[in-house]
Simulated assay, not measured.
Amino acid sequence: MASAGIEDVYAREDDQAWTKIQEENKAILTEITELCNRPDRKTPEVLFLLGGPGVGKSSLVNTINKALCGKYYPKAKTGSGNAQSKTLTLQWFEHSGVQMFELQGAQKDAFSKCLHLLPNVIDAAGNEDHNSAELREILEMVFGGFIPPGTSVEFLQDQQKEGKVGCLKRLYPLCNEEWKVTKVVFVASCKEPLPTQMVECLNEVLRAYDKKTGFPKFNIDVFVVITKYDLVEEQKRFPAVRQQEQITMEKFLEHEREVATHFSIDGSLKHNSIRWVSYVDGHSEDNPFIENIALKFVRQMMQPGRSKHQVENAPSTVVTPLVEMSRDAERWLAETNVNMKTALLVLVAALIIALIYHLLTRSPESKMDL
């Protein structure tokens, strides 16, 4: 039986719904333009895509690009299923991969003057499900803006093998403010188990704080995109465009709840988790319903995050050298006290043993003198 084609999607949508979603998309384009032109918008957002191999990170990039420029361009290389990811570098898509000459129609009207403020996207290689010091170091360096765009992930891993964890900080001592990640998008497939170890690795990195000031190292919001929603049986908006095994809505909701638990977003699931459908190679004809998801996502990514307090912008050192010296002195005194008590006990025991030995080994003449 042939899989449902994109034409079948069109056939199942009445003209009224079609027109309504197109009008909504134009309104969202306007909203994104307004977010670009906010007076406090000095630099574009930097989105970092994290997830396992084959979950749809590259397809997500291509879909965002299509929604923002109006025409489908396969900018990001896409893998297939659980095969090894084709993404071997920290691919940097400036302004979501959109170029001025590619803008079409409504998109051209919206972004021709603010293209430079559309989000930058970093598409990283698919990682195995693990939580390691090596991966934490790479994430910390990327989030902090230390790793240049386009750097090979394999190069970073090879450097760690030769120089051990910590070597990347020596290789890349300076950060670039424009490279700093502002939002992390964790990409998970509804058909694959959630990589919980990778999630915990990410959470550990984002929980890190500066040991001198006490403030968090990163001011980064986390969002989760659950891909391949078109393979859910009960939803009717997006019939599967490929012959793939479908899943039930019950299974999808179970996966969604697991995501909420591991990311601690139970109370903000609708805001921080997105049900995603991508354009894919060979099925990239205009579909305003897919673009609606992508445009809402971009709008969400461009919403201003939590503003830093002025104290956070210029933090003072709480743990000063004097505090450290005081702690070292207290620790030394505590250790010394324990050692002195032990030494006294040993000394007393030695004196008792010496006295007993002396009494037992005295000569007979000495005993008669007593």
Rank of each mutant, 00 (worst) to 15 (best):
C167Q: 10
T196E: 10
D210H: 13
Q99M: 09
N203P: 01
G150Q: 04
T151P: 03
H116W: 07
Q157L: 15
K183S: 07
G105Y: 09
C175Q: 12
K164I: 06
V121N: 00
V121H: 01
A106Q: 09
V121A: 02
E192K: 09
E200M: 13
N127A: 15
G166E: 08
E178A: 13
E200K: 14
E134W: 10
F101L: 11
T182P: 04
K183P: 09
H116L: 06
M141Q: 12
Y172K: 11
C175E: 11
I147G: 00
W179A: 00
F111M: 04
N120Q: 07
E154Y: 13
L174G: 04
M100E: 14
K180D: 03
A125C: 14
G144C: 03
Q104P: 00
L168R: 03
K161Q: 12
F146H: 15
P148R: 06
D158Q: 15
K164Q: 11
C201F: 07
G166V: 12
L139N: 01
C175Y: 12
G145F: 03
R136D: 11
V98Q: 02
L115F: 08
A133V: 11
K113C: 03
T196S: 09
A110Q: 02
Q104D: 11
D158H: 13
D210F: 11
E137F: 05
F155Q: 12
V184E: 02
F146A: 09
V181R: 00
K113R: 14
D129A: 09
N127I: 06
E140G: 13
K183E: 08
E137R: 08
A106C: 07
G144P: 03
L156Y: 02
A110K: 00
P193E: 11
C175I: 06
Y209I: 08
V199E: 00
